[in-house]
């Protein structure tokens, strides 16, 4: 492994440390500023003596900075405390829900790529033809349609009107279709536009123009040269796209009652189940770090240009 790659991993690790410290600190102090955690733990009907007992039990009577340091120490041991509503370890609860989210995100990602790459390539190959201009207009409007609106329309038509698919729930392959389409619609229009623009640019490169003028097959040039180049150009989007995927998953899961971490986030913030919220944001941060580092490394191995440029 070269030095460049080590630098890249080091920078990502620094990012992760900043992120974890930032998110943990922010949520810790926000909870203390906006309310009394003892009141949340003890319940709304607790009297003063019970509140005192809770404070003593959870160490909430110590100075704030001591509480914070103690909290950081326990977070470093991956101990986020017990869920206030479920009575189980918070992190365990989150990890239990993680697979459902990852499965949904994976299917949605595959769907996005399967749709966006051919459509983007088709549109970018000859962007001025009338049919493709109309397609570009449609993609443009679709970009303005929030994913949860797509989800509601899909439920309305497919599940309610024609009763083809279940409208909510998590189970067999058929339950994946609607949530995955909804989640993919958060990402696909943007990716189509980026790939189309990159393909158009690549097709205008000198070497491709020369090859075309000498009678090389346009389709072969498109798929062998322009599309791979366009995809490598789109890798800069991976980080923000993954962020959009997770954000989209939160809303999608809430609509489809999907038992993943997104739905868990919505329900646990509503009940102010703070240990779960902390464990959840921590997990998301680690997830973001893993995905970005792995894709960075993968592309650095594929394309030496990127390796030099990023390190």
């Amino acid at each position: 492994m070269s030095r460049d790659l080590l630098v890249l991993i080091g920078r990502r690790l620094a990012n992760l440390a900043v992120l974890l410290l930032g998110v943990t600190t922010l949520l810790f102090f926000l909870l203390r500023v906006t309310g009394d955690p003892a009141a949340v733990i003890a319940g709304s009907d607790a009297d003063a003596a019970q509140l005192e007992a809770v404070r003593a039990q959870y160490g909430l009577d110590r100075p704030l900075i001591v509480q914070f340091l103690a909290y950081l120490a326990s977070v470093l041991r991956l101990d986020f405390g017990m869920s206030l509503s479920a009575g189980e370890p918070a992190l365990g609860l989150v990890l239990e829900r993680l697979p459902a989210t990852l499965e949904l995100a994976g299917v949605a990602m595959l769907l996005t790529i399967a749709v966006a790459v051919p459509v983007g390539a088709w549109m970018g190959y000859a962007p001025t033809k009338p049919g493709r201009r109309i397609a570009a207009g449609i993609v443009f409007v679709l970009q303005g349609v929030p994913g949860y609106v797509v989800a509601l329309i899909a439920i309305q038509i497919v599940a309610v009107e024609f009763r083809l698919l279940p409208s909510v729930g998590y189970g067999g392959p058929e339950t994946f279709i609607l949530p995955a389409v909804a989640l993919a619609s958060f990402l696909a229009p943007k990716l189509v536009r980026v790939i189309a623009a990159n393909v158009t640019e690549a097709m205008a490169e000198d070497y491709i123009r020369t090859a075309r003028s000498q009678g090389a097959d346009g389709m072969e040039l498109l798929w062998r040269h322009a599309v791979p180049n366009a995809l490598l150009g789109a890798t800069a989007l991976v980080g923000t796209m993954f962020a959009a995927l997770v954000s989209g998953a939160v809303v999608t899961e809430a609509i489809f009652a999907w038992p993943g971490i997104g739905w868990l986030l919505v329900t646990s913030t509503q009940t102010l189940d703070f240990p779960v919220v902390q464990a959840l944001t921590f997990t998301v941060a680690v997830l973001v770090f893993t995905v970005n580092t792995v894709t960075d490394l993968a592309f650095a191995l594929i394309d030496p240009r990127l390796r030099r440029q990023r390190a």
Partner: peptide, 24 residues
């Protein structure tokens, strides 16, 4: 630049939900 990279890679909605739920 590090802070910018970090924040951009994090799903904003996740943290926004937490903050708004706490701040009201």
């Amino acid at each position: 630049n590090q802070v910018v990279d970090t924040v951009l890679s994090f799903p904003g909605l996740v943290i926004a939900i937490c903050i708004v739920a706490l701040a009201g």
